[in-house]
């Protein structure tokens, strides 16, 4: 096993890709965001149930690679209970981490497992796809977002 593969496919990522959390239609969802990567056909719907400015619940459905599925799984766990502003601030930190490998001082919790993705430029979009769909959902956008 090479170090790079271990760094990309960390135990937590493999676990979430094989057993994705929140992988279901969300009853009573108030927002829907869609993410599509035309390069690989990854396609996700992210459901959000807003309680005022707070994400009361989040889930996702769709298909894609290990990285994109694990990212959607960990993301939907991470954003529950956060306000719209907090979600977008977290997205900024995660985006920066996935593209540069820098883990923010204030911490991103379990999401730090995606820091290794930046060494695989072709896979950066996989890790960020569900986040774009989530941000579109909390912003109330109704059209699918593409990573292209």
């Amino acid at each position: 096993m090479s170090d790079e593969l271990d760094e990309l496919y960390q135990e937590v990522i493999l676990d979430h890709c094989k057993k994705p959390r929140n992988f279901r239609l969300l009853e009573g969802a108030t927002r829907l965001g869609e993410g599509y990567n035309p390069l690989c056909g990854d396609n996700y719907k992210v459901y959000v149930k807003m309680d005022g400015e707070v994400v009361a619940d989040a889930s996702f459905q769709g298909s894609g690679c290990c990285i994109s599925k694990a990212s959607a799984s960990l993301m939907t766990d991470a954003v529950k209970g956060r306000t719209k502003t907090e979600v977008k601030a977290l997205f900024a930190l995660v985006h920066d981490m996935i593209t540069t490998g820098r883990v923010a001082a204030q911490g991103v919790g379990k999401l730090a497992v995606f820091a290794g993705v930046h060494k695989f430029p072709a896979r950066v979009k996989c890790a960020i796809l569900a986040w774009h769909a989530l941000v579109a959902a909390v912003d109330g956008a109704e059209t699918p977002v593409s990573t292209e």
Partner: peptide, 13 residues
């Protein structure tokens, strides 16, 4: 149960 992009990334390594 393995996406083609994971196959290709792994093989590339």
């Amino acid at each position: 149960d393995v996406h083609a992009h994971d196959v290709v990334t792994f093989a590339d390594q």
